[in-house]
């Protein structure tokens, strides 16, 4: 889980950084941690952590493990583990999360829904384990 002291530590060795001068269009998918400082349209998915900077503009449905959102997001967010919404964040879409913190000043226009324990557990399973879990 993030806390104030270590929340940026996870992004020191981010595998992907999209700078402020970059416009991404399409289905952006990564295995490692992703930092977005520019703009993105389409979809955004990673198995690891996601950081959206305060100048970033994301028009996409987002899926990640942990996430920190400080910029503008137009789309639904699913953060399987922990979601930190900063005071500069503007979110227009529904949010699903394992755990959440929201800073003063954040704008959220959408529904907030906590993921069930079963949902979180299923998301952690491998595909073949998921099939067995569904059969049961």
């Amino acid at each position: 889980m993030f806390n104030k002291d270590n929340q940026l530590e996870k992004f020191k060795d981010a595998e992907t950084i999209i700078g402020a001068s970059i416009k991404v269009k399409g289905n952006f998918q990564g295995q490692g941690s992703i930092i977005i400082e520019g703009s993105l349209e389409g979809s955004l998915k990673t198995d690891a952590n996601l950081f959206i900077g305060d100048r970033a503009k994301v028009t996409a449905n987002i899926e990640s493990k942990d996430a920190i959102v400080n910029g503008e997001v137009r789309g639904n967010i699913k953060s399987k583990n922990y979601l930190a919404i900063g005071g500069t964040a503007k979110i227009f879409g529904d949010i699903q999360y394992g755990e959440i913190s929201v800073a003063k000043g954040a704008i959220i226009n959408g529904q907030l829904m906590m993921l069930s324990e079963e949902h979180k557990r299923n998301d952690k399973l491998k595909p073949e384990e998921k099939a067995v879990a569904t059969d049961k």
Partner: peptide, 18 residues
């Protein structure tokens, strides 16, 4: 040179505006 360069990778593209 980056200005005006477009990179197409897998399912997405990157446009550099500086």
């Amino acid at each position: 040179q980056s200005l005006g360069t477009i990179l197409e990778i897998d399912d997405y593209s990157l446009e550099i505006i500086k």
